[in-house]
Design a protein around this nucleic acid. Structure first.
Lengths: 342, 342
DNA sequence: TTGTACGCGTTATCAT
DNA sequence: ATGATAACGCGTACAA
C-alpha cells in the first residue's frame, strides 16, 4: 500500500488546523471558514492531490454511503434492469452500490445480507420472490431484523412476508388479466409452465392465471400445469415435457419471460411452431423481448422503476411497521398470441 | 442510527482485553489464544450478536475489501456478463464489488474512478473500449495513475493505451476470421455497421473485417461502411440508412451484437428478410443470442471469463509495467449467414 | 472564526 | 499468551 495524502497533510501544508481543513473541504453545516483560509486549504489539497477517505469519513460520521444489492443472477435481464434502477437511485442520492449475487443459491442470500451488514451498508435491497418455506423465511427474517436493529434499513422486491418494506408486483392481477386477454382472443386450452412449487411469485402467477381461466368457464387441465425451475433451462425442460406427452393445448403461459424464452427454444427444437401450433406468453416484459421473434406476449413490469422504488423505500427512513408499494402490471399482447377468433 | 455492538462490548462481556477479543475472533496470524479464552470470547460475541465492522477493520488494516467496477450500462448483456465474472472472481477472493454505471457518458467514467478512489477500493476494473481522443485518454490516464499512486491497482478491458494492465480482445483477428468465414460461404458484397468513428473497438473490428475482405479480392465498398452509435438504436439507425439507399449488399456486419440486434429489428420493420434478403453477423456472442431467430452469426468472446481475468489482473499486484492479456475469439456461424454457394 | 482534543471500531506494536 | 495503548483518517463538541 502506497502512501495516501491525508487531511493532516493538507492542514499542515496550508498552515491551518485539522479542523479548519476539514471544514474548508467538507463545508461544515454550522461552521464557516474565512474565505482566504478556505482558499489556502483548497489550494493545498489540490497541490497535494488530496483525496478524502470515504471510509474514514464514514467512521467519523457513523454512517457509510453504500447501499447493498442482492440479486440471484446479474446476467438475467430481469435482475440487471432492476439493478440499473437501484444504481440510478443510489447515485442520485450520492450513494454507492455494492452488488452481490447469490447465483441462485438461497442460502447465500442470508450470507450476503450478513456480509453487507458487516460493510455497514446504510440500506439493503433484496430482489427475489420468497419461498413457501417457513424455516428458510424465518432465518432470513431474523437476519434482516438483526441488520435493521443495527441501524440499517431494508427493502425487498417480492412478497411482504419478512416484516420489511416491500415492493410487491401485481402477480395475481397481472396473470389474471393476461388470462382474460387470452380468453378474449379465443384461447380455450391453456397450459402453464409453473416454476417451482414453493416459489411464491411463480405460484401467484400460476394461480392468478388458472383461477381466471376457471372463472371464465375453461379451467386449465391440472395435467397441463408443469412445475420447473424458474430459469431458462427450467422453461425449456417444462415445455419439452409438455410437448412430449402431446398435450392438447392452444396456449402456454410461462410464469416469467426467461422461462418463456426457454420454452420457445424447446418448441423450435422440436419443430413446434409458435404461434401457429401453439401460442406462448410470459411475464415481466424483460428488455430482451425487443429482439425476440415472434414478439412475445407478456405482462409488463416496470423493472427499472421497481429498482428505483425499492431503493427509495430503503433509503427513506421510517418509523412505523413495514410498508408495501404495489407496482401495477400491464398486459402487452404481441404476435406470439394472435387472435384465434378470426 | 441505532447502536451496534462493538468488539469492546464483546471483550468486556467475556472478561478479556480488547486485543485478546480481536485475536480470538479474527484469528491473528502470529498470535494465538488460549482455547478456553477463545471459547469465552466467541460465545460472548454470539450472545451479543456482534458483527465486525468491515470499515473499521479496513481502517486499521490499511486496506479495504472492495473492488470497483465501471461499466457503461449494466442492462447491456455484454456488460452484465462481464460483471458476473467480476463478482465471481471478487467473491472467490473474499472481496466485494462496488458497481458503477456511466450510462454511456464518457465524462462520468473519470468521475467514477475518482469516486472509487475515495472509497479506497483496493482495485478497479474499467470495462469499455477507448476512444481515439488523446485529450480524453490523457485525463483518464492521469486519473488512473493517481489512483495507482495512492496504492490501488487497475485493470482495463479494452485497448492498452492507458498504461494499466489490460485485457485485450482479439478484435482485428476475430473480425478478420469472420470475414474469411463469410467469404468462404460465398459472400462477396459486404457492408459494415461501423459504430462511432473514434471508438477503437469499433474501428478495430471494422478495419479487421474490411481489410480481410479486401485481401480476399472483394473489398467492402466504402459507401457501405455506415458509422453509428455503439448501441441497439445505433445499429437500427445504421441499418435503416443502409437499406434506405438500396445498397447492393449480401451480408451486413455489425461491430457488436447489440447493434446487430438493432439492425435485425430495422430489417424486420422494413420487410427485409434475414438471411433471405441479406445476411447478418455481429460480434461478442452475448447471452441474448440464444433466444434470437434466426441464430445470429457472431464472434464469441468469453465475457464472463474476461471479467474474471480482468479482476485477477487487477488483484494480482505486480511491479513491472502494464501487462496485457489477450483473449482469443472464435467465429460462430449460425443461420443468419447461410452458405451461399449451394 | 479557529484550534484542541476526543471518539468512531479495529488492528498491531510493545511490554509484561 | 495476554493486556495496555498507539495508530488508522476524519468529524465535531468544546474551548479559546
Amino acid at each position: 500500500m502506497a502512501t495516501s495524502v491525508t487531511l493532516s497533510d493538507v492542514a499542515r501544508e496550508a498552515g491551518v488546523s485539522l479542523a479548519t481543513a476539514s471544514r474548508a473541504i467538507n463545508g461544515s453545516a454550522t461552521r464557516t471558514v474565512r474565505p482566504d483560509l478556505r482558499e489556502r486549504v483548497l489550494e493545498a489539497a489540490q497541490r497535494l492531490r488530496y483525496t478524502p477517505d470515504a471510509n474514514a469519513q464514514a467512521m467519523a460520521r457513523g454512517r457509510t454511503t453504500s447501499v447493498g444489492l442482492v440479486v440471484h443472477d446479474i446476467t438475467d435481464p430481469y435482475f440487471s434492469s432492476i439493478a440499473a434502477g437501484v444504481t440510478a437511485a443510489a447515485d442520485a442520492a450520492g450513494l454507492q452500490v455494492t452488488l452481490t449475487d447469490t447465483r441462485h443459491d438461497p442460502e447465500r442470500e442470508v450470507e450476503l445480507v450478513r456480509l453487507l451488514q458487516r460493510q455497514r451498508a446504510r440500506a439493503i435491497v433484496v430482489v427475489g420472490g420468497r419461498h413457501d418455506d417457513e424455516a428458510g423465511n424465518d432465518v432470513m427474517r431474523r437476519t434482516l431484523a438483526e441488520y435493521a436493529a443495527s441501524g440499517g434499513s431494508v427493502a425487498l422486491v417480492g412478497q411482504p412476508v419478512l416484516d420489511v418494506d416491500t415492493v410487491v408486483l401485481e402477480n395475481v392481477a397481472g396473470a389474471g388479466a393476461l388470462a382474460r386477454a387470452l380468453h378474449a382472443r379465443g384461447y380455450r386450452r391453456p397450459a402453464v409452465l409453473g416454476g417451482p412449487d414453493t416459489h411464491l411469485t411463480a405460484r401467484e402467477r400460476r394461480d392468478g392465471f388458472t383461477h381466471a381461466f376457471a372463472a371464465l368457464g375453461t379451467p386449465v387441465d391440472p395435467a397441463h400445469v408443469v412445475p420447473s425451475a424458474f430459469t431458462h433451462e427450467g422453461g425449456e425442460a417444462a415445455m419439452r415435457e409438455l410437448l412430449a406427452v402431446g398435450a392438447d393445448v392452444d396456449v402456454v403461459f410461462a410464469v416469467n419471460d426467461v422461462m418463456a424464452l426457454g420454452a420457445l427454444a424447446a418448441a423450435r427444437d422440436l419443430g413446434v411452431r409458435v404461434p401457429e401450433d401453439v401460442a406462448l406468453a410470459g411475464f415481466d416484459d424483460i428488455l430482451t423481448l425487443r429482439d425476440v421473434v415472434p414478439g412475445l406476449t407478456s405482462v409488463r413490469v416496470p423493472l427499472v422503476e421497481v429498482g428505483r422504488l425499492a431503493t427509495g423505500l430503503a433509503l427513506d427512513a421510517h418509523a412505523e411497521g413495514p410498508r408495501v408499494r404495489t407496482v401495477p402490471t400491464e398486459v402487452v399482447l404481441r404476435a406470439s398470441t394472435p387472435d384465434r377468433r378470426a
